[in-house]
Design a protein around this nucleic acid. Structure first.
Lengths: 317, 317
DNA sequence: CTGAAAGCGCTTACAG
DNA sequence: CTGAAAGCGCTTACAG
């Protein structure tokens, strides 16, 4: 049995209220008594908390995280960063996987709340609309999406990659996304498109609609660089290009997004764009706790992304 | 405000005790009253729980998961499976990342317990020893490790891959692991070694000690197949082999473990061995809940692994 | 400066 | 079959 507040109190011959006051730093208690209580609490490894405090204060000290798909390699890093940041401010982290569909997303929120979460961090599935949430909520998505959103600046990330490719003298590009239902992917490609100098041309392929063959076709028609909205898409394209006997980066340059684990290990190594997940996590946790505790908080700004140049974009036309 | 037990009770003019009894199916209550109570509870979306119940029963309905490193692509799948199975039996799931070191591992357990976990599922860092745990505990590791362990049969997985390679007429093999501090990796390689027919030879390389050059050297000395203890190791070896102008699978076959996301997408596609993570998760959750609830439970058996043959092992000597 | 008392929402003997 | 009462561990006015 872990020690209870009352154990500390009786063993020192004081009241529970006094122990509670000292440990929470609230009421005024004589320095000597306070010291005694603190050292006794430390000696026995006591810290207030648990369901007693939760019941009394209405707060559990636990946050809930809804992820669209833990098996997608992008999200574990986000989960890791969020867990780290929430632990750093003394909160626990409950997780729920919505398996990428909107109904499960509502169900996941409900489960987390039932398990006692004081607030929710939601990484939405591609534009899945959220009905409502009976608790403080922060969304991690993309700056173009509605309120309460913390995110990387995916649009700016898109400009980065196009700047890099045009600097290598590419004039005919292909932008490749998986699904145009994804706000993140749309913003990345919007950034690419808007950063394109007027003397360049680009075509956008959504894999969900046209399939990878459209990318191969574009290359055969003269495109010399492919910018994908994720490393996983880039990896798939690399395989398709290899099958079509198109060499990367000699015949076509290729880039991704997110610096997934394989990007630095595969051959060629993959040029990619990354955001500081810990900065995003920190902003998200801060914004959520501000809501929970009712304190003020500056509206979160988008975290800038960074280009990581690698060998997959070292070719020139 | 969510409805409380007492809200249901007063709106029906009955006592809290009766509502509680009906909803938990315990005391005997007249069928009519029970029905009324149940439908009123459903109408208002009430379900017992929260800190009130936790305080009274001493259980929170939440499990804690300690992972060595969420950014390692092997673990998110395990986390996803565990979250799924725990949700299926009505438990929430708290996570904590131990960042791969033993001190954090103890800290992670402490944090989870403080956040209210009724029990802990621990995926240990490479043989990091666990001091002690003041709560029910289940470990997910490898069958050769101590009590309370649920796992895939990594040894048998090793035998699978060697059977596959020798069937393709390979007679000189290389087994490659990252670290021989890992029980999982040791067991996988033990299985490989024990499955090796007497007319074959094999050499084991631990990357941590010898580096990838030793693998290239072994191939130059005549080895025709490489069995790695993980897909990530296999991917790294593929890059090194490519740099050394050794073609996979034409000149050497290569296999991994775990079917990580890139294994089926890269070229060549990677032969690998996989376990049913959901079966492992189910066993682990069952074993943990049996401990928590004090019910009996059969000792968990090791989950068999399955070979997934792909193009990286289609070469023959 | 310190403590007695009430109460957060629930469940569990127990009495009727 | 139903309910009054106590109590899980804590915090918070409030009284002294």
């Amino acid at each position: 049995m872990p020690p209870r507040l009352i154990d500390i109190a009786t063993s020192l011959g004081v009241s529970a209220a006094t122990v509670s006051n000292v440990l929470s730093g609230k009421g005024r208690v004589s320095p000597e008594l306070a010291d005694q209580i603190r050292s006794e609490a430390e000696r026995r490894g006591y810290a207030p908390g648990g369901p007693g405090r939760a019941l009394r204060t209405g707060r559990s000290g636990v946050l809930g995280l809804v992820l669209p798909d833990l098996s997608n390699p992008l999200f574990p890093r986000m989960a890791q960063a969020l867990e780290h940041e929430s632990a750093a401010v003394g909160y626990g982290m409950l997780i729920a996987d919505s398996h990428g569909n909107a109904r499960n997303q509502q169900g996941a929120i409900a489960r987390l709340l039932k398990s006692g979460a004081d607030g929710i961090i939601l990484v939405p599935r591609r534009g899945a609309q959220l009905e409502d949430c009976a608790a403080p909520l922060v969304i991690i998505d993309t700056p173009s999406s509605p309120d309460n959103t913390v995110s990387a600046d995916h649009y700016q990330g898109g400009t980065l990659i196009v700047g890099h490719l045009t600097r290598f003298n590419h004039r005919s590009l292909v932008f490749v996304g998986e699904s145009n239902l994804s706000g993140v992917q749309r913003d990345r490609i919007a950034g690419m498109r808007d950063a394109l100098p007027s003397y360049c041309t680009a075509r956008t392929v959504w894999l969900e609609q046209e399939g990878p063959a459209a990318v191969v076709a574009a290359v055969k028609q003269g495109a010399t660089a492919i910018a994908a909205t994720s490393d996983l898409v880039a990896l798939r394209l690399l395989a398709v290009l290899e099958d079509a006997k198109i060499a990367v980066p000699q015949q076509v340059s290729l880039s991704g997004f997110d610096d997934l684990i394989f990007a630095s290990v595969m051959r060629p190594t993959l040029t990619t764009v990354i955001a500081d997940e810990f900065a995003i996590a920190r902003n998200a946790i801060k914004a959520l706790i501000a809501q929970i505790e009712g304190t003020d908080h500056l509206p979160p700004s988008a975290i800038p992304m960074t280009l990581i140049p690698r060998t997959s974009t070292t070719g020139t036309p």
